[in-house]
């Protein structure tokens, strides 16, 4: 163990941390570019089934 030893697990851990950081920044930019009403496009399949069949969904 001469010189500065950099343990292998740190490459992995710091690599994953860096990945998350880059992903977070990219996702920030991606979300910022989406229009606010984009949320209307995200439709759960089971709820869509209810809508198609005319099943009333009561708001609690």
């Amino acid at each position: 163990m001469n010189g500065d030893y950099f343990p292998p697990f740190l490459y992995f851990s710091l690599g994953a941390w860096l990945f998350l950081f880059v992903f977070f920044i990219s996702f920030c930019i991606y979300l910022a570019r989406l229009p606010d009403d984009k949320i209307l496009d995200y439709k759960a399949k089971a709820i869509e089934n209810k809508r198609k069949l005319g099943i009333k969904i009561f708001k609690f």
Binding site: L10, S13, A16, L20, F21, F24, F27, A32
Partner: peptide, 22 residues
């Protein structure tokens, strides 16, 4: 506050917990 924050905050949370095991 809105759906974008609801989506983005977990990514930041994931970033925050990662170094704990080091």
């Amino acid at each position: 506050r809105n759906w974008k924050i609801a989506r983005l905050a977990p990514i930041l949370a994931a970033f925050l917990i990662l170094p704990l095991s080091i």
